[in-house]
Nucleic acid binder design. Structure first.
Lengths: 147, 147
DNA sequence: TTCTATGCAAATTATTTGCAGCACT
DNA sequence: AGTGCTGCAAATAATTTGCATAGAA
């Protein structure tokens, strides 16, 4: 736990209850570690914490700047945040269950790099999301999960 | 032009002035054919047309359902629309100029397909955006264009 | 005439900001 | 006391919806 606090200090953020709690929530979200600000907020309320939604947004944004979390703008209006792993990865979203699967592919990574260069650019970042459905399902892109 | 009207009819949409105008705007946006609803709205106003912003959103959404346009949720809050080309392509966004470059890469397309399958899924759609900067530039992901 | 489509204003959703009070140094 | 942090409410930004009327078939 001194560990976690250190992460915050290192980021130039004071160790406060909301920040520690939010970090905990992000860490303990094992099954689905992509949470929206609203998700985090609800979890806090359920835990009996008295934290405002505005603070959740502020803290998540600070964490993002500090590199502690990554913000994703998948389709569907709201952003989701995940604790930043050391290793980069992309995402696959199941249109039927809303489940998010992570993957990493060396070939794709390399090609992206090359493509940017071929066009005279330098690759800074990228966002790749595969929208998929279980084999045989009829789920379409339109009916994306609103969750 | 009977051509365009036919496109609309084929989509089950009546040929009305707002729809025809919006289609024209999308077609004539040669240099940068990725327009936000607001962009389209402004262009209409400049052209002296009396069309409401709500209608622009409604029409663009209808066009999307009809497959006439594609909606992209790049970072930065607002969606952009482009006339759907027959051939699929992905996008590269220059963090410095905001310019959007299109590209297509067979290797990446194939790998995406394979990856979905390896995980037991069927690929329905995907979104790939490369955020790039001119060689030597210092532009970062954070300061993305707000345009 | 019969619906569909549109304009306008009000409603929503996601997120940000202003501000007065509290906390820690 | 000083500066950072927080909750709450009000402010934005993007997009959607309700409703009475104008327009296409």
């Amino acid at each position: 736990m001194a560990d976690k606090n250190h992460e915050l200090r290192k980021a130039g953020l004071k160790v406060t209850l909301p920040r520690v709690k939010i970090l905990q929530i992000l860490e303990s979200a094992t099954d689905q570690h992509h949470l929206s600000a609203e998700d985090v907020y609800k979890t806090l309320l359920e835990a009996g914490e008295d934290v405002g939604l505005a603070t959740v947004y502020r803290v998540l944004t600070q964490f993002e700047s500090a590199g502690l979390v990554v913000r994703h703008n998948f389709d569907g209006g709201h952003a989701v945040f995940e604790l930043s792993h050391e290793e980069h990865h992309d995402h696959m979203v199941c249109l039927e269950s809303g489940e998010i699967i992570e993957f990493f592919d060396e070939t794709i990574e390399r090609r992206q790099q090359e493509i940017a260069e071929e066009h005279g650019y330098e690759l800074v970042d990228h966002a790749l999301v595969l929208y998929v459905r279980p084999r045989g399902s009829k789920a379409t892109r339109q009916e994306s999960i609103k969750k």
